[in-house]
């Protein structure tokens, strides 16, 4: 699913996710489980989960307007995975603007060194996500194809 051999970033997109739990930890678990179960990406959940939670405990990754960008590393992947999930649910994230979150960009980054190109792509994504116009575009994107096209614009 959403996999491409020659791309320097992989995607996993779910534009209409329904989370079983509103708890952050459970949300991370669900997201990672979806990726592992429904795609060909294979990595150990616990390592990534631990990284993501460690990062989240430093400060919230909910950066406002309903968006969050949690991130963690895995030693078992070689290409970063951008997991984009949109939900109708309003998730409590202790975001910077105290608003609930419904669009999550989960970044899973390879732990190995020498991934400068990947990191650059992710930093570019973060940079553009502050743009109100781009935020609106992601809010309006209803299908996987729409979301993928937007990500491609920002990452390629």
């Amino acid at each position: 699913m959403n996999e491409s051999a020659d791309r320097s970033v992989d995607y996993y997109i779910d534009p209409s996710k329904i989370f079983q739990s509103g708890k952050k930890t459970e949300i991370f678990k669900e997201m990672i489980d979806d990726v592992i179960k429904k795609s060909a990406f294979d990595f150990e959940r616990e390592e990534v989960l631990e990284e993501i939670e460690k990062r989240e405990s430093l400060s919230t990754t909910g950066f406002g307007n309903g968006f969050a960008i949690p991130h963690g590393k895995s030693s078992q992947i070689h290409t970063p995975i951008v997991v984009l999930m949109k939900t109708e649910q309003k998730l409590e994230w202790e975001a910077l603007d105290d608003q609930p979150v419904s669009i999550i960009f989960l970044l899973i980054v390879p732990k190995e060194k020498g991934e400068a190109i990947h990191l650059k792509l992710l930093s570019r994504l973060s940079y553009h996500l502050m743009d109100k116009k781009i935020q609106e575009a992601f809010k309006a994107a209803e299908t996987k194809e729409n979301c993928e096209a937007l990500l491609n614009q920002l990452l390629v």
Binding site: F63, I69, H71, L107, L122, S123, S126, Y127
Partner: peptide, 8 residues
């Protein structure tokens, strides 16, 4: 982490 918030 130096990946996301730095650039935001």
């Amino acid at each position: 982490t130096g990946v996301a918030h730095t650039f935001m």
